[in-house]
Amino acid sequence: MTRAHEKLNYVEFAAKDLAATKAFFQAAFGWQFADYGPDYCAFEGEGLDGGFYRADLCGQSEQGGALLVFYSADIEATQAKVSQHGGTLVRPIFDFPGGRRFHFVEPSGNEFAVWSEAATA
């Protein structure tokens, strides 16, 4: 884990179904997890280290939750993998002033987004 003074270092998410959440991120994004008992798993080397803890909660941007955003060099392929592996699209690919992005919810209900540069004509 990288440590830089007063910089973001770790993020934790609630997950009502740890097994389904782990399986989704392993399949769609290639993440690896370390289990710390039956109620917590951690990931590292994914841009920001973090973990999931068992709870009947989830993070949604419309409820004021933080929205973590992935980068993709091929947004269409990433959207297809997310859908194929159990993610639910809540906003399909759309343009914004700086690129394109989509939003999805993983199996435990946490919302994430993926962005890429604007499509070239």
Rank of each mutant, 00 (worst) to 15 (best):
residue 94 F to E: 13
residue 46 E to I: 06
residue 13 F to I: 05
residue 10 Y to D: 08
residue 15 A to L: 06
residue 107 P to R: 00
residue 18 L to A: 11
residue 119 A to N: 09
residue 31 W to D: 05
residue 95 D to H: 08
residue 98 G to S: 05
residue 72 S to I: 01
residue 64 G to M: 06
residue 108 S to A: 09
residue 24 F to L: 03
residue 14 A to L: 04
residue 51 G to A: 02
residue 36 Y to C: 08
residue 12 E to C: 03
residue 19 A to D: 15
residue 27 A to S: 14
residue 36 Y to D: 04
residue 76 E to L: 11
residue 92 P to L: 01
residue 30 G to P: 04
residue 77 A to G: 10
residue 6 E to D: 11
residue 63 Q to R: 15
residue 7 K to N: 10
residue 95 D to R: 10
residue 90 V to Q: 00
residue 118 A to I: 12
residue 55 A to H: 15
residue 49 D to N: 11
residue 120 T to P: 13
residue 22 K to G: 03
residue 36 Y to T: 08
residue 51 G to R: 01
residue 27 A to N: 11
residue 42 A to G: 12
residue 77 A to C: 03
residue 49 D to I: 10
residue 57 L to W: 13
residue 108 S to M: 01
residue 41 C to S: 12
residue 28 A to P: 08
residue 113 A to L: 06
residue 77 A to Q: 14
residue 120 T to I: 02
residue 71 Y to M: 13
residue 104 F to H: 04
residue 45 G to Y: 00
residue 13 F to N: 00
residue 93 I to L: 04
residue 46 E to N: 12
residue 86 G to L: 10
residue 75 I to L: 11
residue 99 G to L: 07
residue 119 A to F: 03
residue 91 R to W: 05
residue 39 D to Q: 14
residue 100 R to V: 09
residue 11 V to F: 10
residue 74 D to E: 12
